[in-house]
Design a protein around this nucleic acid. Structure first.
Lengths: 158, 158
DNA sequence: TATTGTTATACTCTATAACTATA
DNA sequence: TATAGTTATAGAGTATAACAATA
């Protein structure tokens, strides 16, 4: 029940009361994500790839031949949206789709040489940017935060 | 550099490798937010209010007469979008707008009696849902997570 | 001239449902 | 019948720029 106040960044001294909103995990996840994305991805090949697109290419690069539906479920992207996102990636020449003979309903995904080169080129930048320093966190705080986020995202719920 | 594997929730035993993606704060913030929103807001008056709309009403309720631009900056909502969001809230009868005499460019915001009643009714549910238990976190973990998210979102950067 | 908010456009992503082609 | 993916539609949110009214 901390009463939190946000001071204006400029010269105004307006103070906005947030009440117990900063004690809400849902609200704070949203606020932190907006701040983090601004800081981490502002110069992250933004002309080429969106964060969602990069993680898609990344997962395909580690799991060549992954089925489209499993990829969507893993990244919590809706199947309908995954179709459109992948069409962009195929169009851009980063992804190749393949229909296997044993189940002709499904689609297997692979990176093209261009796609592999792009992921390799971005990999270092992506990992470096995400060590928490750019967000003002210490190494220990970063590790702590990652553990808690992983628990929320990957935990089996009863 | 933990190599993390996500097992399928169903009976399939496909395993998707994520490599060092779960060590990325940006990626994990996004994954945790999706999971948290699904669990916390699935029955949160979802027919009436979106999370973004609720936090807007909440901040107006604590700061009656707040200027629209300051509200948008506080919640990190783009001004163009704030205009549309507020039009919905005015249309729904929750918000009243007022142009002050001393600066007729600006707009001051107030809740209507209906809006105040709605926020009051949702307040308990919102706070209860956000204590971390619904996400499988202990009290201590919740406090720790909130502190780190607040540091990211509210910290002055050099 | 600068600021506050609005309108307009385009695009990303979500949510849903209807549809196809396979199994 | 059920499953994998596609198409279509509607809405939320972002990004950007041009604009009107006011300071």
């Amino acid at each position: 029940m901390t009463e939190t106040t946000v001071k204006d960044h400029d010269e105004e001294q307006d103070e906005v009361q947030l009440g117990s909103l900063p004690d809400s995990i849902g609200f704070m996840l949203r606020m932190a994500q907006i701040t983090a994305f601004q800081r981490l991805f502002e110069s992250f090949e933004s002309d080429t790839l969106k964060p969602g697109e990069f993680s898609t290419l990344w997962v395909i690069s580690i799991n060549p031949g992954i089925k489209q539906g499993l990829l969507a479920k893993t990244l919590q992207i809706k199947p309908a949206h995954m179709t459109k996102l992948l069409h962009r990636m195929v169009q851009a020449g980063y992804v190749r789709r393949e229909v296997p003979a044993d189940d002709r309903r499904s689609v297997l995904l692979f990176l093209t040489p261009d796609g592999r080169e792009l992921v390799d080129r971005q990999r270092e930048i992506f990992v470096d940017r995400n060590d928490g320093q750019g967000l003002g966190l210490t190494k220990a705080e970063t590790a702590q935060l990652l553990r808690l986020l992983q628990k929320i995202a990957f935990q089996r719920m009863p």
